[in-house]
Design a protein around this nucleic acid. Structure first.
Lengths: 350, 350
DNA sequence: GTGAAAGCGCTAACAG
DNA sequence: CTGTTAGCGCTTTCAC
């Protein structure tokens, strides 16, 4: 114990061994040590052994900074999510981390909180860090910053949403179709007053999902009551307030569609606080499979996205040798039916 | 659109502007440009303006690699969690990210999956990256690697658990006391056969919580049935299997304590699959406040940890100027009573 | 198969 | 206040 304690307390005084130190100690040239550690070029087996042994004795670890400066590449990629405590981004990040690791890359994580200002700072930061690429859930702003990063030779891939003006390869789902089919399902159950909790319209995903909701109605010749369509930010408070507002209109909806898991959570909370029962009083469906969707009572019908795979795909795209020619990728979604939505029949006046 | 497309496709050919380029273009010395961007030393307002203007024109962004090499500091910290898709680590990471950002630091995220091998690789990787510090949820192995990192002058802080031999400052809760009070609560309700789903014993948190469970029993003179105590890894499958095993012993428990949220989720799933009702058939309490705890029916009584604050504290410790003299920090927990546990009275034989 | 040398982009003295 | 200079640790020719 006291031994390791001193290790901690001495640390400031310790000078790290450098490649040159190893070279001197092993009695070889600097280039040789480099060849051993970068695994490039031929080195005699005996020399290699001696170098590795010496390195171990000196507790030498090659410096990625030195290497990065020379190679002009860091093997780091940036990941900008909105909120890493949200399971959706967490799953995605797991996909990124696993893939990055298998390709020998590290991930610098940034949480923008959907804030444009914050996003801008993070972009600049990642540019300064000279990351090889950036995977982002863009806020929809900062077009200039993205372009500038691109010009600097940083590969960029967007996920979940994209920015139309930018022609940046993106990993998406078919948001319009997904929202449409989810809505169709609810309409098919007989519901005619469906509340819609949508995301902000500066996100392509928000816009397209709302559009899908409308299209499904139009296809079936059902009028959308604008009172029942709200677009809200993804914070718990505003989402809850929006959900509540939806529940207290004069003629309340008989079903609710939440366009992501934060909104779904808010919806269920509001519903419970209003002492409504699901699905007896109101049917509920939402985007995003989350651990709690099948844990609550009744389990929630969800439109799930292959989130981990999206992270994997985004990472592969960022690191693809032919990044310049990449196209956006659209991954399939799945409607998982559970017990939270049920048929609705018009009540016949007695 | 086509304009930005070409930006993407031209990128390989683009040469990034360097500080020297800016100096030449602005007609000043290299040192002056450096002073402008590192915000050190005096620069005439007019000169500064000219430099900044020139930099903008050249789309110049200072290189953190060059700076890092010279300064021998990267302003990066490493964060090793088990699984970032787990809300517990997600909240913690949010705390780290927010704090790191406010202190001008970046975070390299690693997910060990509780695997010692993987953890070792990540430690080495972060060492090579020359991070200023590492925050980790240690697996309990790799003692040598941690010591080596420490000797290299990297600040290390552990969270949630620690490694006793290492004397590394840690951000913890009082695991023993927390588990004891949670158990006491259940015992006080009258339960005498309490199932315990614990974490692996190579984690100090796992060991201490199990110990707290036992102490509470000892304090009240209640015998612990070893059949009801399982220690399991934190994967969904093994956790589920362990939970199920607990439910099918000859004389099943009347209450269940899950020592973290993964285990709690597994427990609830197993309980539901066995068609048991909470709390009528079995009471359930668990560690960790998670979004779904108050969403399920009935809402779950939890022992919550100040997770975000733990992330914040860990980050501050890593960056503390007096890191060498830091002690471990123990943060308070809270027992949030909800409806998932209820009194149990022995059934009188008829 | 190996050593020597140049230089990646930056900061930090040191002169002026 | 500003220009010049010497490396930080590494990779990569180029000779030998």
């Amino acid at each position: 114990m006291s031994e390791s304690k001193s290790a901690r307390q001495q640390q400031r005084s310790v000078k790290q061994a450098t490649m040159k130190d190893v070279a001197v100690a092993a009695g070889v040239g600097l280039g040789t040590v480099s060849r051993v550690f970068s695994k490039q070029g031929k080195v005699a087996e005996s020399t290699r052994h001696r170098v590795e042994e010496t390195a171990r004795e000196l507790n030498y670890h090659p410096s990625a900074i030195g290497r990065g400066l020379k190679r002009q590449a860091t093997d780091n990629i940036g990941l900008i999510v909105a909120d890493i405590s949200n399971n959706f981004y967490g799953e995605f990040a797991q996909g990124v981390l696993a893939t990055a690791k298998s390709m020998g890359r590290h991930v610098i994580l940034c949480a923008s909180g959907e804030d444009a200002e914050s996003e801008k700072e993070y972009i600049d930061l990642l540019v300064e860090q000279r990351v090889d690429g950036i995977i982002a859930f863009p806020t929809g702003h900062n077009v200039g910053a993205w372009q500038s990063a691109l010009r600097l030779g940083i590969n960029i891939v967007f996920a979940d949403r994209t920015i139309d003006e930018l022609n940046i390869p993106s990993v998406l789902i078919d948001n319009l179709a997904a929202a449409r089919s989810l809505t169709e399902y609810v309409l098919a159950l007989g519901h005619r007053r469906i509340g819609y909790l949508g995301g902000p319209s500066h996100l392509t995903s928000g816009r397209l999902r709302t559009e899908g909701f409308r299209r499904a109605h139009a296809d079936m010749g059902v009028e959308v009551d604008e009172q029942l369509v709200v677009q809200t930010r993804f914070t718990r408070d505003t989402a809850y307030a929006s959900a509540l507002r939806l529940l207290v209109v004069e003629e309340p909806p008989t079903a609710l569609i939440a366009s992501n898991n934060v909104l779904g959570e808010a919806a269920l909370t509001a519903i419970r606080d209003r002492r409504l029962r699901v699905p007896e009083d109101i049917s509920v469906v939402m985007f995003d499979e989350v651990p709690w969707a099948k844990l609550v009572d009744p389990p929630i019908t969800v439109l799930s996205q292959p989130v981990w795979q999206m992270g994997q795909a985004a990472t592969r795209m960022i690191l693809a040798p032919d990044y310049e020619n990449l196209h956006s990728l659209m991954l399939p979604t799945e409607l998982t039916l559970r017990a939270s939505a049920r048929p609705w029949y018009p009540r016949v006046p007695v």
